[in-house]
């Protein structure tokens, strides 16, 4: 099984995690720029973080046979601190870099006017830099936040096929399904979604435009939730191809819109198909 985790914060994870992820089948991932738990107080610390996302972290991932890409943005939480606003001025330099495959995480935290401004400004940057967009939906007041997010995206002129709205659940998935945007789900140990609830959503809505991630970070989270959800799909009767679509083809299709996804040399998976042909020629396990 090959897995592409479309949302995971490896900066906060250990080398043991990288090894366990590789062993579970993870061969590629996207690390969105987000906050670090401890609020930052200057643009310079963001720049150092961004440098890590295109420098040290991809190098670390490569030591474990995993291809690392990232998204860049001023996140909604820190958008509220005027000391961090200057991040928007350096962002264009980083959006131009090789490993950057989307603008994100954008969206709302507390739905303040400052968050509105920063969200809109960065949607304009996504158009300028011809990049897809990763939008985070708020932990609190999620349904209202999701509706407002979809309105802002619609007004921005970014086409829905180039937007993923993340951290969805049973209440918010329908809104996003109707919008034409991609649907992102973070599978967590206790909160957000769990593997069985995810499988139920996939049964109801299908596998089209679906992205499933671990969103593992510095909090209680688990980088193997992708694999556990894939196993739960198989146990529920989904075919290998459905699992491959959700955990590989979909993230490749979404982030591939950047034109900067570099998966050359990712180890061939026994179940991998090339233009519909498996190298196993029917001897599939």
């Amino acid at each position: 099984m090959r897995i592409f985790d479309p949302h995971i914060h490896m900066t906060s994870r250990t080398t043991d995690d990288y090894q366990a992820m590789y062993d579970a089948g993870v061969r590629a991932l996207v690390e969105p720029a987000f906050w670090l738990g401890q609020p930052r107080t200057s643009v310079d610390t963001f720049v150092d973080y961004f440098d890590g996302l295109v420098g040290w972290e991809p190098f670390r991932a490569s030591q474990f046979g995993i291809r690392h890409h990232c998204t860049m943005a001023l996140n909604p939480k820190e958008a509220n601190d005027p000391r961090c606003r200057g991040v928007l001025d350096v962002l264009p330099r980083y959006l131009a870099k090789d490993g950057v495959v989307a603008v994100g995480e954008l969206g709302y935290d507390s739905m303040t006017p400052e968050e509105d401004e920063v969200f809109a400004a960065q949607l304009r940057l996504a158009i300028e830099h011809d990049l897809p967009v990763l939008v985070h939906t708020p932990h609190r007041d999620k349904a209202a936040g999701t509706r407002r997010t979809l309105d802002v995206v619609r007004e921005s002129g970014v086409t829905p096929e180039r937007v993923v709205v993340d951290h969805l659940n049973e209440v918010t998935v329908g809104l996003v399904a109707d919008s034409g945007c991609w649907m992102g789900f973070s599978i967590y140990p206790d909160t957000k979604m769990d593997p069985d609830r995810m499988v139920a959503i996939l049964k109801e809505y299908g596998t089209d435009r679906m992205l499933v991630n671990s969103a593992a970070d510095w909090g209680k989270s688990d980088p193997l939730r992708t694999r556990q959800t894939a196993d739960a799909m198989l146990a529920a009767g989904f075919a290998d191809d459905d699992v491959d679509r959700v955990f590989w083809q979909n993230p490749v299709a979404f982030y591939g819109q950047s034109g900067r996804l570099d998966l050359e040399g990712t180890p061939a998976d026994p179940a991998a198909t090339f233009e519909g042909n498996s190298v196993l020629r029917g001897a599939r396990p």
Binding site: P92, R93, Y94, L95, A96, K97, D98, H129, R260
Partner: peptide, 10 residues
């Protein structure tokens, strides 16, 4: 050059 310089390699 600020956005072209990073894009050279690709």
């Amino acid at each position: 050059i600020r956005v072209l310089f990073p894009a050279v390699g690709r």
